[in-house]
Design a protein around this nucleic acid. Structure first.
Lengths: 177, 177
DNA sequence: CTCCAGGTATACCGACCGGTCTCGTCGAGA
DNA sequence: TCTCGACGAGACCGGTCGGTATACCTGGAG
């Protein structure tokens, strides 16, 4: 799992799962991309299912680390939005990896718990930052809407708009232009 | 396409694509569920890709018809939310079929245009109902966030909360319980 | 009567699926 | 020196993928 080969497998699996979808990507393709045989892949992860779980866990860990780093030097709600915005530079226009995975995986798949935990963590972080559960719920709603829209609009427009709304502007005030 | 067999194929394809994901469902399974041979399926639709497009088009048409019906007897923004809420009774906890499809399909897939058109239509309808593009954008954001959350939370809680926010309540006022 | 659309049944295609297996190699630690 | 874990090469498994082909049946319209 911590071996160099295991690392390469996880990296390639992450890239491929995110880019093409979990179901659409085969273990043979992952192994080949990692310069590894299927045997090594199965020695390291045991099953495709476990590899999927590891992929989402890794994705959460990386994203969370970046969020905490940014929050450390500039605490506040809009740093959360900024992290999504910055992340979208290499997350491309495909949208949130967890939303994408949630759309493909059955709800009782072991990896689905990782998705739920990730989203819960984000919501809880918003509550920690605002000290207001109600407001956290609202901001979380904006966030999810914005990243969902990025998936089919292909731009960060909605995300930037949502950040503007979150920046304490009252519900109805315009922010555009 | 309009033949009885074609209809049954489309119905079964819709149910299976939505429930298990587009990539995960094979044409053989669809044909079997429709009580039809693969040849008939290919005579009617030509390819899996075209069947996917037809599935999303049909889904849009059905949903749109229901929305207009409801709007006719009770115009207003919250009827849009109510339609999602009512729809979720047979859409189950899996979330928006268009968001699910968008997560699986490459952005240049012919069916992706149907997804974009559907979402655009919803946004435009909100603009028509409010007469305010800015407010429509905001409501659309709430809507997308709520249906996205339904996908991994498995409840309509976020949708009901969003309807509360949309019912002109100012951003920060609580609505829970 | 004839023709044809709309079917059924079934075999087939090459490619790929997730997963297992054997065999061999290589380098580091006891 | 010997062993053991990490890995490569590659064959193999049963099954499914999207898609095509051949042959046959049937009911209704010309």
């Amino acid at each position: 799992m911590t071996t160099p080969a295991g690392q390469r497998i996880l990296e390639q699996a992450s890239a491929l799962f995110y880019a093409h979808g979990i179901t659409a990507v085969g273990v043979a393709g992952i192994a080949e991309a990692a310069g590894v045989t299927k045997k090594t892949l199965y020695d390291c992860f045991g099953s495709k299912s476990a590899l999927i779980t590891a992929y989402l866990q890794r994705r959460h860990n990386q994203w969370w680390a970046e969020l905490q780093e940014r929050l450390a030097e500039r605490p506040g709600v809009d740093t959360v939005f900024d992290t999504y915005l910055a992340h979208s530079q290499f997350d491309t226009e495909l949208g949130c990896g967890f939303q994408r995975a949630a759309a493909e995986l059955p709800h009782d798949h072991p990896a689905f718990a990782v998705i739920r935990a990730h989203k819960q963590a984000v919501r809880d972080e918003l509550e920690r930052l605002t000290g207001d559960p109600e407001r956290a719920d609202f901001l979380f709603l904006l966030l999810e809407g914005a990243v969902a829209r990025r998936a089919f609009e292909g731009t960060t427009e909605a995300l930037e708009y949502a950040r503007g709304v979150a920046a304490d502007r009252p519900t109805s005030a315009p922010t555009a232009d």
